[in-house]
Design a protein around this nucleic acid. Structure first.
Lengths: 190, 190, 190, 190
DNA sequence: CATGAATGAGCCTTCATTCAT
DNA sequence: TATGAATGAAGGCTCATTCAT
């Protein structure tokens, strides 16, 4: 029997990401997608059983993958503010290098598709900065405020930073990112 | 076109806003919209010559209207930080009371429809805080950074605040909004 | 505004009957049907909101119509056996002249579509022979057996008669139909 | 083709019968069938070269098998009416015990598939009662009418009887089947 | 102005069948 | 023989838009 081609699956994901980035979910037509990937529509249905399944599966995979990557080597022996900044930079770079994935996830979160994502996946996530915030509070360096709110604020500033970089209003150099980080840091520091 | 029955026109806008808020642009079916408004589809086409025209026209009108409202009576004689806060609160309330309009505009900005909006309209806008920022800088109270960036940051935090309120994660009371304002203020103050 | 064309509706029904007669429900393709009627597929959906609705609506209409027609002028002053025969002949002719309608209804009854037909319609029906059977029993002319069973038997023989006529194995003349009626009559007479 | 694993072949037939019984031919999806049997779709095609071949082959086999069974031991030394009744009961029981096979054949007969069944098979069949009818006529016990018509009538009543039993409107006991047989007998007796 | 009727273009999905191992 | 992968050819249905009154 013919053997399934992982490459093909990845191509499907890649192209879906591209399309969603350009035109949103409504722009994802099964026929167009198939054509871009170079397979027939029916083959698409061999890999995903419906359009919904396609999007939900990709989202699930991306979210899971993203969760794994995050905190990595921040556990180094650094002063708190630097840990924070390391993480900040990590996410800036990640967001820019994976802008389409980020966009995809962002879109999914606001769409009805999000309800279809396995609860396990949704929960496992977002532990990203929480531990760090706790540490900062313990050291008296950041304000004693509900973690979720802190995360929201930092997240908003970070996303905006990425936007500014993408729209070329600021540059991805030390100087500019330092300024942007200072906004975030000043916002939450004690 | 667009000569008769202002009531009908407003009903169309109102319902479009509602639908977009609930289901996004894809949810706006000409037939559904007509039914909700209580007119026939054909009549809809008497008022707007296409779906695109419908959305672009509404967006144009909303953006124009919004621009007018903003700075109003903040020109009072208040210390700078209070002016800032007044404006902040003004926008918080405005965003919440007009959440559907805000949402509509936000969506349009990210959609291909945005390209169709008259340049004049798009430019006139966003003069919101610029003057205020200049004043703050002159008084040495806020950091000397490109206005557009300041506006982005403040805007991001504001939007996030509104989100938190809408999703019930914080309340629309003095205590909670004060905290949120402090994030914004700390971020940009000297 | 353009006005709805009853002719069109009737043409849809007619063609649906023909197709079902030739190829069963599976043979009814919305596109083919539309083409035969000379309208576009979308127009078909103006008249019926789905394929199921098409079939169920037609069935409902046919059954209702059929119920009305039946007993008519059998209330004449005839000896019982002749009343019976009049009805028998009426149904033979009706079945042959409306063979496609009969076939359609027969098919619907055996299909899952039948469940979707309004209960009212299903009930109102079939009072056809019941009264007659009661009369026959009272006069001691036919066997005292459950009406439903009598109806089944007569119905089966009648259907078979129609089949034989359609397949040309017997003729639609007095001689042949007399023989066939005698089968039915002998079966149930006292 | 059709060389290996008789068990598998029988399982295919069995499941096809079940599916047709439940949902008709349209319900027979090659993939579903394969899954139920526990083989792959491709393997199905090793046994039958197409869906048509599948159905036609099964029908051919069933019809052939059925023809063989019928008249068996009715040639006993019984009075004619009892011979008739024996046969009647034989078919009642056969139809009920092999309801799925009967249903399958009935369906095939009304479908375009029937045209594809080898003429030889179709002809060999149905000699069921003919000999018996001849005997009855010779003894002056049943009406002197074309055998084919007699067979049709008896067949129709028999089928209806089975239907009534299956739909639980009558029972499969001596009393009820006697009544039903009396209908048939009265219909054709001299 | 108002509207019900009509439609073309397209979208998602299914399914029998063939390929390649 | 056995099978998972791959596909073409539909089929049902939707929707923005145009017609005709």
């Amino acid at each position: 029997m013919r053997v399934k081609d992982e490459t093909k699956r990845l191509a499907i994901i890649e192209n879906t990401l591209d399309i969603v980035f350009d035109k949103g979910f409504a722009g994802v037509k099964m026929s167009t997608l198939a054509k871009r990937v170079g397979i027939s529509v029916s083959t698409l249905y061999v890999y995903y059983e419906s359009k919904e399944d396609l999007i939900v599966s990709i989202a699930t995979e991306l979210i899971a993958r993203q969760t794994k990557n995050s905190v990595k080597d921040i556990t180094e022996d650094l002063p708190f503010k630097l840990k924070m900044k390391t993480m900040w930079l990590y996410w800036i770079h990640f967001s820019i290098n994976h802008s389409k994935e980020m966009h995809f996830i962002t879109q999914v979160k606001k769409s009805p598709y999000y309800d279809k994502i396995p609860a396990v996946i949704k929960e496992t996530k977002n532990r990203l900065g929480i531990d760090l915030f706790e540490l900062g509070k313990k050291e008296g360096l950041i304000r004693d405020i509900n973690n979720e709110i802190l995360a929201s604020i930092i997240g908003a500033i970070l996303l905006e930073t990425v936007n500014l970089i993408i729209t070329k209003k600021i540059k991805l150099n030390e100087e500019d990112t330092d300024v942007m980080f200072s906004f975030a840091w000043n916002a939450i520091k004690s």
